[in-house]
Amino acid sequence: MSDPFEGLLRSTLTDIAEEAPTVRDSLTRAERRARSRRRNTVAAGAAGILAVLVIGAPFAYASRGEDTVISPQPGTSVPQPDRSEPVPAPPAVASPVPISPEDPTRPDSAVPAPPGVASPVPAAPGTPSPVPAPPGVASPVPADPADPADPADPSMPASPVPAPPDTRSDDPAGPPPSPVRR
């Protein structure tokens, strides 16, 4: 950069600066502009928040709807018990697969229930079987002879464990091992 060119540049800039306009009452207009800037900033922020809510609300509602099934009729939305579901036995009926406290060697022997009570399906010990069996079906698991609830008694319900048809539970020699697994 040469000095003459630099001098020309400086003098030209000074000449141009002398042509600058004179501004009056610039503070009032600047204050008005500052208020406008602040108002626009607040409005833009509020619009942004509103846009986020409008856009995000359907997504949030949809993600919530994936977890619960919404019933079209809120009054009938109470779940009804299914027919295929097991119905618990009445409180008066004894558990079909109890563990006899008097005979620890045969924990799987079932205590016959009173007549007319549904026969349980083989299940884990201690778990009441809800499926009833037809009355009069012989129990494959003989009960304890000392047990007053003798399966031979037709008034007593069948054993919960299904057995072959020719197997009777009134064998005095002793009952076969119970097929019920522990």
């Binding site: 600058a20 306009p21 800037r37």
Partner: peptide, 17 residues
Amino acid sequence: RSSAEDLFQSALSKIIP
């Protein structure tokens, strides 16, 4: 001229707050 006035007022409005 008008741009100079606008620039000055814009800068002034930014320093007022």
